[in-house]
Amino acid sequence: MGLKLFLNLSGPRTIYSQDHIHPILMQQTFPISDEELEALAKNSIDSVFSTMLDRTAVIDKVIKVDEDNHSEGLQLPMDANTPMIAGTVGFLGNLTGIIYIFMELPLAMEATCKLLDMEESDIGVEDHELVNDAIGELTNMIVGTFKNDLSNKGYECRMTIPSILRGSNFSIEPAEVALRRIFKFDCDGRSFVIDVLMKEEN
């Protein structure tokens, strides 16, 4: 059973899923090069991780998702059995798109503890609300930095409110998008993935 995410999200929400995600953007040529996009992704992660978490992360893998090369869907480049949390924020404007941050739950918990200056025992494994909110805000900051860099390149956009998904064994189905890249990051041995989908508006 597929799950469609739209850009005009009306409020914060959490979706529990082990489903496929169907991006809904259309195929187009794209004005931003792969190198530029990688730099945008890297800068947004560097900025947020160093400022808010006192941590660094490095790009481990970049996957180009084309219409032809993944017609049967793409498994996320992460351990399928590890529970994950995914934050997502869209942006609308000259460039329209959506960015997903898929994070292993242990890393999400560490990030929440650091952000809120709490111990894991203070939060509790079952306190989804606090972890969801923290990862939602982290995603908001990452996409915000990404979007602000786009703005400096002349692409004005505004952001949607973050949404959160929880689950495991995520896979990504083929999508008709102008540009889609998946960046796998390593943060002290823990993994997370950024999935960027964008198209240029006429």
Binding site: N140, M141, V143, G144, T145, K147, N148, S151, N152, E156, C157, R158, M159
Partner: peptide, 9 residues
């Protein structure tokens, strides 16, 4: 206090 920067904003 916001993630929304950009000149226009």
């Amino acid at each position: 206090l916001t993630a929304e920067a950009g000149r226009e904003n």
